[in-house]
Amino acid sequence: MTSRRQLLKLGALAAATTALPAWAARAAGDNVGRADKPLDILILGGTGFTGPFQVDYALKRGHRVTLFNRGKRPAPEWSGEVEQLLGDRNSGDLKALKGRKWDVCIDNPTSLPFWVRDAAQVLKGNIDHYLFISTISVYADGSQPGITEQAALAPYAGKDAMAETQDSLRADIEHLYGPLKALSEAEARKQFGERVTIVRPGYIVGPRDETDRFTYWPHRVAQGGEMLVPGDGSDPVQFIDGRDLGEWMIRLAEAGTIGTFNAVGPAQPMTMDEMLVGAQAVTGGDVRYTHVSAGFLEQNDVELPIWVPAASGPYAGYGQVSNARAIAAGLSYRPYATTVRDLMDWFHSLPSERQAELRAGISRQREAQLLALWHARDA
């Protein structure tokens, strides 16, 4: 169980979190000024997780926005006029883009190199700047802390990357996702030359996050009681609010910034304990933390989202990726408390049956079983 020293530390962290000026700080999307020059922005996708934040921020900045997607998801109620073009990149149906020009193209959903190639066939020469959302999963070695944008990328071991489809990707996503994203980056540079910006996020969190990978933690903290916490609480964690990511990409477009950037947060290192106690300060959960070892979790075949043990393992560096270049290029972060508060407000607006079945983490029953096994070691 949590020791007295740990309890004092956690109490101090909780007090510090509630005292942060973050609570009164301006959220990044509020009181947005107009851009110096309005842009014509094409967003491929735009109705998923981060896309709506890009659209909303771009409209507030005075830009003209066009979306291209299949039209399968209902679009939010935008704060201004948004042009909608329909097509399907899986089948190569991009005719709606032909003969049009934009200042900037933001490519949100691409995980397949042929999507970039096909888009370039109609967009090359008709856009000035191409921004591509990639992932930190492109790195060949995720085991070391301090991964920079210059680190080696994961190699593709298949027969023909251009023949890969969404079905083949889903069938072997563990081995294909990173390499195909890396090849999509290479294809973007091949097709669009120097006017390319590559943004590599880690975990994207906040309102509209349907994965529940981060949501599991503040939701569980809010429930209270004895809570299983992986590791000793000192392992670093990284994530970025989808609004911070989306809005920053619009600012990159405005500035014409090119290059490659790790889009991870927070600005300063955060540990697992700090993440949980910060969430506790927001939710008010009456929770007691019990730290269990990584070995115990591995022995019991337990995987928990967001957390990775920093001591060893193929992903040990994923909580310590360098974000120095991104911060230098203007990436800024909402207060952590704002992310948690807004996320939970959004989550509680979902249907009750959706709230009852989280898509990540472990059930309360499974957690109780694990805690009983952990305590039984000393019985």
Rank of each mutant, 00 (worst) to 15 (best):
G193A: 14
K190L: 13
L180M: 08
S184T: 15
E194N: 15
A182E: 09
S184Q: 02
Q166E: 14
D160T: 06
D167T: 10
P155F: 02
K181F: 08
A161P: 04
Y156P: 02
D172Q: 06
E174Y: 12
G193V: 13
F192G: 05
S168M: 01
Q191E: 15
Y177L: 05
E187M: 15
A186R: 11
D160L: 06
M162F: 11
E185Y: 04
A154M: 08
G178E: 00
T165Q: 08
E164Q: 08
L180P: 12
D160Y: 00
R195H: 15
D172F: 01
L176N: 13
P179V: 05
A171P: 02
M162H: 06
Q191S: 15
E194I: 13
L169Q: 03
Q191N: 14
F192L: 10
E174F: 15
S168Y: 00
L183Y: 04
F192M: 12
G158W: 10
Y177C: 01
H175P: 00
I173C: 05
F192R: 06
R189A: 10
V196H: 08
P155T: 03
D172K: 07
D160S: 03
K181V: 08
L176V: 07
L176T: 04
L169K: 06
L169Y: 05
D172G: 07
K190Q: 14
P155D: 00
R189W: 12
I173S: 12
K159D: 05
T165V: 06
R189D: 04
Q166P: 02
L180N: 14
L169H: 09
K181A: 05
M162R: 04
H175C: 01
Y156A: 06
S168A: 00
A182N: 12
K190A: 13
R170F: 14
L153R: 11
G158F: 06
P179A: 04
A186I: 01
K181C: 09
E185K: 07
G178L: 07
E194Y: 06
K181Q: 07
L153K: 11
L169S: 08
Q166H: 14
L153P: 00
A154P: 05
R170Y: 09
T197N: 12
E164I: 00
L183F: 07
L180Y: 07
P179Q: 11
V196R: 05
T165A: 04
R195W: 09
V196C: 11
A163W: 03
S168T: 12
H175Y: 01
L169V: 01
R195C: 10
K190V: 08
G178K: 02
A154E: 07
M162D: 09
I173M: 13
T197F: 12
A182Q: 11
G193Y: 15
A171R: 06
L169W: 06
G158D: 03
E187T: 14
Q166L: 08
G193E: 11
E194C: 07
L176R: 13
R170T: 05
K159V: 09
E185S: 10
M162E: 06
Q191M: 15
Y156G: 03
M162A: 09
A161L: 05
A186L: 10
D160P: 00
M162N: 03
D160K: 02
H175D: 01
I173E: 04
K159P: 00
G193F: 13
L169P: 03
K181D: 02
S168R: 05
V196F: 12
A154T: 03
L180D: 12
L176H: 10
A157W: 03
A161I: 06
L176F: 08
E174M: 15
Q166W: 13
H175N: 06
A163K: 12
D167M: 10
A157Y: 11
Y177I: 04
L176S: 00
